[in-house]
């Protein structure tokens, strides 16, 4: 990849495969990340809905976030009259509790990185996307440039922040803190190609067992259908992406839009200049007005 900012010949692309089918929702990853990276608690409030998730979303101080989904057939509307009504639900259907540990996707086509005007966001030798807190000036452009709603600017700190894929640990040969803490190996860390290969075999096994809703989000897609060129941190999901707050398709908005938008804009600029000139040329003629 040409944009790699730090070169080390022996380094290879490293990534995450987060297999949500084995996640138990313990949030150890979320806490381990805060601990390793010295991130403050955001403080949270009791959230309506959202099950056991009270931190809500990824943010400038939450670089791993565990989302909770409760899946049961929706209840019929119950009339608000005591005594207790029979809701008419199947009490034998236990439903299921789905957890997903979300993180920065370390996109191959990273919108944040494309957007960053200061070079704070770089591609490392592990082909991860790292935000250098000592360079970032908090311009905030990376924030809407991320199609996954990952990076955010902290209101009080002023800088943007997101997962570094534990760049400091990787350099020491240590696996990232969240993966280290994960008791179930839901978060698997390793060389990207190995992960993709294993993840594909995992999907095959789940399909064999009848779990045909299992799919990979961000890896193994047909050419042209990749998410943001392929995600360095990809997921095995069982529900539609939106249920986890993920878009069904994504691309670096810069790579997608900059050229057409610029052509249109510069074209318009030329047209405008011409228009102005034309007005002046026409200015000599025509009826005299009291402008």
């Amino acid at each position: 990849m040409s944009e790699i900012a730090i070169r080390r010949p022996e380094a290879q692309r490293m990534g995450f495969f987060t297999d949500t089918t084995v996640c138990i929702g313990c949030k150890a990853c979320e806490v381990a990340c805060k601990q390793w990276n010295d991130l403050p608690a955001d403080g949270s409030e009791f959230r309506k809905g959202g099950s056991y998730d009270h931190t809500g979303a990824l943010g400038a101080n939450t670089w791993r976030h565990v989302r909770f989904l409760e899946t049961t057939a929706p209840l019929p509307e119950l009339p608000a009259i005591p005594p207790v009504q029979d809701g008419g639900w199947d009490l034998r259907d236990p439903g299921s509790w789905v957890f997903m540990s979300d993180v920065c996707k370390h996109c191959t086509h990273a919108g944040c990185l494309d957007a960053c005007p200061t070079g704070a966001l770089i591609r490392t030798e592990f082909e991860t996307v790292v935000l250098q807190p000592d360079v970032c000036n908090g311009c905030g452009y990376c924030v809407p440039a991320c199609p996954f709603g990952v990076v955010d600017r902290d209101h009080d700190d002023g800088r943007a922040a997101k997962c570094t894929l534990c760049y400091d640990r990787l350099q020491e040969g240590l696996e990232p803190a969240c993966a280290k803490a994960c008791p179930t190996d839901s978060i698997q860390f390793g060389p990207y190609d190995e992960l993709v290969e294993r993840a594909q075999r995992r999907v095959a096994r789940l399909h064999e067992k009848g779990a045909t809703s299992a799919y990979l989000y961000g890896a193994g897609d047909a050419p042209g259908e990749e998410l943001a060129g392929g995600l360095g941190a990809f997921f095995l999901l069982t529900e539609k992406p939106e249920r986890y707050g993920l878009p069904a398709q994504a691309e670096s908005p810069i790579q997608e839009n900059v050229v057409p938008a610029t052509v249109a804009a510069v074209g318009a600029g030329l047209a405008a200049a011409a228009g102005v000139a034309l007005s002046f040329v026409l200015g000599g003629r025509g009826k005299r007005g009291r402008w």
Binding site: D42, F46, T55, P82
Partner: peptide, 23 residues
């Protein structure tokens, strides 16, 4: 704080039927 923010308040779990019945 890291743990407290994950479950910030005392709560009670109840089913939707009893919730409706008790308002």
């Amino acid at each position: 704080p890291w743990l407290a923010e994950l479950q910030p308040e005392m709560f009670a779990e109840i089913d939707p039927e009893i919730a409706v019945a008790r308002g």
